[in-house]
Nucleic acid binder design. Structure first.
Lengths: 122, 122
DNA sequence: TACAAATATGAATAATCGTTCAAGTGTTAA
DNA sequence: TTAACACTTGAACGATTATTCATATTTGTA
């Protein structure tokens, strides 16, 4: 029985079964919630935040970003791969130089909402 | 010399010094970027995303959340502490029961922006 | 008072993650 | 073709993190 399993697992009794059921019906799919967490995980690193903020300002090559953030070019390249996989940045090659830029307009909107939260609190 | 240090560190030459300088001036403070990353780090976990989404729907006690997510009450309690510290949830006590609810209206806005990004891509 | 229930917390463990280092592409120019 | 440069990548290391387990704490109740 499903309910029995859940109680065994949660280690407590259901206090408000009606609330739980109502909320359960309104929850997005497991997949959607997972993807959402994965997206925010990408934003949850200072280096990547800085890279995205920089690219929101201007297209830049890997070396420029490394200089701007005072980090090794290798570290930047690793982070750019993660941003690429999340489809947050795109790139174009010009000879040996690779130029990165934002691939998503609402990154700025998400950041701004985040800043609102931070600055509103005290 | 600052520039020398940066070049040592980034392991490459400045390609577009003008771009780097222009972007540097537009960057928010180190502190702001750090706080922003910390906020998104909190969103970057499936369990916490689920908790926040549930609380966006209805006030719930710890036990209810544990049943809803099929997790131990202890695990939920640990995550609620993180959400409390980030000022994303608030709580009220009623006897031995602790009811949690959202403490921030734009959590929903941030989530919605995130979903837009996810769903727009293919 | 003693007990059970709801929640919180500290320590431990396993998994994940960011950076570094070393070695690899691919491209330009001598 | 050789060398230098811009960048990428894989492995390794240390740090962080989510969950579990055991143990508190607080409150209602017998």
């Amino acid at each position: 029985m499903k309910e029995r399993d859940e109680l065994d697992r949660c280690d407590c009794n259901v206090i408000h079964e009606d609330v739980v059921n109502a909320v359960r019906e309104k929850m997005p799919s497991e997949e959607n919630l997972y993807d959402l967490a994965e997206l925010f995980k990408v934003f949850g690193d200072t280096t990547r935040i800085k890279i995205l903020w920089a690219l929101a300002e201007s297209e830049m090559c890997v070396c420029d970003i490394a200089v701007l953030l005072n980090m090794t070019q290798s570290a930047i390249s690793h982070q750019l791969r993660i941003l690429r996989q999340a489809r947050l940045v795109k790139y174009r090659k010009e000879g040996k130089i690779v130029y990165y830029s934002l691939d998503d307009e609402h990154v700025k909107h998400i950041f701004n909402q985040g800043l609102i939260h931070i600055n509103e609190k005290y």
